[in-house]
Design a protein around this nucleic acid. Structure first.
Ligand SMILES: NC(=O)c1ccc[n+]([C@@H]2O[C@H](COP(=O)([O-])OP(=O)(O)OC[C@H]3O[C@@H](n4cnc5c(N)ncnc54)[C@H](O)[C@@H]3O)[C@@H](O)[C@H]2O)c1
Ligand SMILES: NC(=O)c1ccc[n+]([C@@H]2O[C@H](COP(=O)([O-])OP(=O)(O)OC[C@H]3O[C@@H](n4cnc5c(N)ncnc54)[C@H](O)[C@@H]3O)[C@@H](O)[C@H]2O)c1
Lengths: 209, 209
DNA sequence: TTGTTTAAGTTATAACTTTCACAAAAACCA
DNA sequence: TGGTTTTTGTGAAAGTTATAACTTAAACAA
């Protein structure tokens, strides 16, 4: 076959999932690509194309069964089983993330880690904060798949290496820094400042036109 | 001319900015496209291409003057003057964002807004929390450019409309929802769940290969 | 000066992504 | 039952973005 699925398609799947869940909660049993496209703000052919990378999920002339499509996308993404997540850095951001992720049923925040002794032993929404030194041991026992790093850029490289040694292969970082990502680890970044800068540019450009 | 600058290029500019600031803080006066590319994990021709959309900033055979390039990118993005930001929703996330953005010199968090009376009047890192009803008045006096929405999806449409009425044209939302964005408003989203789902897919795919 | 080296800027090509347009399949109706 | 409608799935075209290859300008040394 020799072709790869666009990364943007995967990101869109996760948006479709949100729309589909909303549709389901509104009691809708069927949905068409046009409807899904409209709520996501894209074209219907793109919706169909994205799905077609993974198989045939719809019925021609009818649309997609909402529930079935949700299950299918969950399986594609890999969240048919709850994903175990750890949070590194139990500061303001880390605590907000724990609370947020706890509310999402297909994530399980199994633990938090902090290097500050005063944070260790405390609990955030029922999630225990462990010393970073225990990460490898904890990981052997619990096998989390994802680490979310809510720490300053200073300790980033060291932490990524540690997380990798603990066998965690997916890392989401809130510290943006030129880092050597260990082999086998997939890492991405969220940077609010960049998002605001992007908006700033768009506003500026729009006002000129 | 009839060609548009790719949005991804703008997003990369803001990453270049971070690398450049680091280089500056290390006392480096000059930087080459290869070096900038390496620290950002992309190709050097892409760096040069991105910059070439906006002009000529380097010296052939020499590279880019770090300080000059920072200034140039800041001006392109529109952060040569500090950007005034408001935060809507002074919960866990809102407070974490206030603290984070306060640390970045080219942002000025001028106020926070909450609909919960018990939050109103309090202060987070020196930023005052106002009732949402005062947003328009506040905005007339202070003219913030960007609103960051750290609220649940329920009130999103209403809040976006309010923010738009207040004359704010850039919105960053942490609630992902099929929303009608008022004309003239640029809106984008940050959704940690989507980022983790994306990682989940990549891990899953990697382990099969 | 003049030749050589270096790295930016630019053009051409390749890779990727989206859209278009239509065939195919299911459902519905007379 | 057969024709009509509807909407998916898909191959090809169009459009966009990234990479590679090349050209030009600056700097430096002899
Ligand atoms: N990228 C973004 O969009 C974004 C948004 C908000 C905050 N941030 C950044 O994230 C970081 C955390 O923000 P915060 O508001 O929670 O700060 P904070 O100071 O409240 O919390 C940081 C926590 O991390 C712990 N920590 C520091 N280094 C660590 C390490 N190497 N290992 C384990 N724990 C460690 C500290 O002990 C502290 O508890 C800050 O650097 C902030 O600038 C980024
Ligand atoms: N997208 C993401 O990545 C992400 C990350 C973290 C949290 N969240 C979401 O963001 C929201 C806020 O998270 P949190 O942890 O701060 O919750 P929180 O309950 O601590 O805070 C929410 C605050 O917003 C206020 N609020 C609610 N509706 C409002 C409105 N219409 N106008 C003004 N203020 C309003 C509430 O009074 C409260 O103070 C939650 O829905 C959470 O799920 C999203």
């Amino acid at each position: 076959m020799g072709f790869s699925i666009p990364e943007v398609s995967i990101r869109r799947l996760s948006i479709y999932l949100r729309c589909l869940r909303q549709a389901l909660s509104r009691g809708e049993e069927w949905i068409q690509s046009t409807e899904l496209a409209r709520t996501c703000g894209i074209s219907s052919s793109l919706v169909r194309k994205d799905l077609s990378y993974f198989g045939e999920f719809g019925i021609r002339g009818r649309g997609y069964r909402v529930e079935k499509l949700i299950k299918a996308i969950e399986e594609i993404i890999g969240i048919d089983e709850p994903i175990k997540v750890i949070i590194v850095g139990a500061g303001n951001l880390g605590r907000a993330l724990i609370r947020h992720l706890q509310e999402i049923p297909y994530f399980r925040v199994v633990g938090a880690f902090d290097k500050n002794a005063s944070k260790v032993g405390s609990t955030v929404s029922g999630v225990r904060v462990y010393p970073v030194a225990e990460m490898e041991k904890f990981s052997r026992e619990t096998s989390p798949q994802i680490a979310v790093l809510a720490i300053p850029p200073e300790g980033l490289q060291e932490t990524v290496d540690m997380v990798s040694r603990a066998g965690i292969r997916g890392v989401l970082s809130f510290a943006l820094q030129g880092i050597k990502v260990p082999p086998g680890v997939v890492m991405n970044y969220v940077e609010i400042a960049s998002e605001i800068e992007f908006l700033s540019y768009k506003i500026k450009k729009g006002s000129v036109a």
